[in-house]
Nucleic acid binder design. Structure first.
Lengths: 135, 135
DNA sequence: GTTATTGCAAACAATTTGCACCCAC
DNA sequence: GTGGGTGCAAATTGTTTGCAATAAC
């Protein structure tokens, strides 16, 4: 794996065209309209790209695995009640000096950051008082 | 919707006894030595505890899903080459005022933060041609 | 007695693997 | 020709679901 394979290039380019993180299967469905490519190849390419630090993935509350390029990196607020994720426009870590603990010899390529809690509508819905109130 | 079920309590307590994040299956193997409990019940309890904001999970590079309580929350440096994760002792976000973008009405319970890159040994091992793709 | 919770086993889906084929070198 | 990359289909794995038994209230 000294080189970037055609499949890896194709996967990376397709990922770049997405506005949103996308699942492997959805990626396949999209790519196969353009070219002959197997789902296994996509998984292999995604895995390689992950290890090369070009692609990242996250698992939604619902358990779906979504991929995006690290350039499209986003941070999220995820509501534990309704499961919705709200992308943050800016990274709170921007401008923060990072101090990797074990040593500063770790070379950071990118990071993932996600906040979990309750969105406003769900805060209202899940207050203890309201939960047991019968109308 | 009632409160915590016995299974949820048991799962949460067992999680608390761990020094490390643990997989659902490992949790099951450990708990079944103490009591009669099914794997499905553990998955159901974990899911409920997740939505209650008591338990969080992350997916390792290898694709393993690991669970821990939010009190045991850790942040990691993960090496893309060897796959090892190094826990950070302190959170870089500590003392940083968070500015959720969409509105400040989002109620944050906890967050996850993981840095990806190369650990020192792997920086040496990894040749430049491996590190950089011409895509 | 009624309703929610659980264990078990079957079902499911996402991902991985084995292998033959094909292409580039 | 040789070796890596790929498509396909089968295999595998982690997770979810249906349902009857059980426990909770």
């Amino acid at each position: 794996m000294t080189h970037c394979t055609p499949a890896q290039t194709a996967v990376l380019n397709t990922l770049r065209q997405q506005n949103q993180p996308i699942s492997a299967q959805a990626l396949h469905g999209q790519m196969r309209t353009q070219q002959r490519i197997g789902l296994a190849t996509i998984y292999r390419a995604l895995d390689a790209l992950k290890r090369l630090g070009r692609v990242q993935h996250r698992t939604t509350l619902a358990g779906e695995t979504l991929y995006n390029t690290v350039e499209q990196d986003q941070h999220y607020l995820t509501c534990l009640h309704c499961g919705q994720s709200f992308p943050l426009k800016a990274c709170p870590l921007k401008g923060l000096q990072l101090q990797p603990q074990p040593s500063n010899s770790f070379e950071v390529f990118y990071h993932t950051l996600e906040f979990f809690g309750l969105c406003q509508p769900c805060q209202v819905e899940t207050t203890p008082e309201e939960k047991h109130l019968e109308v």
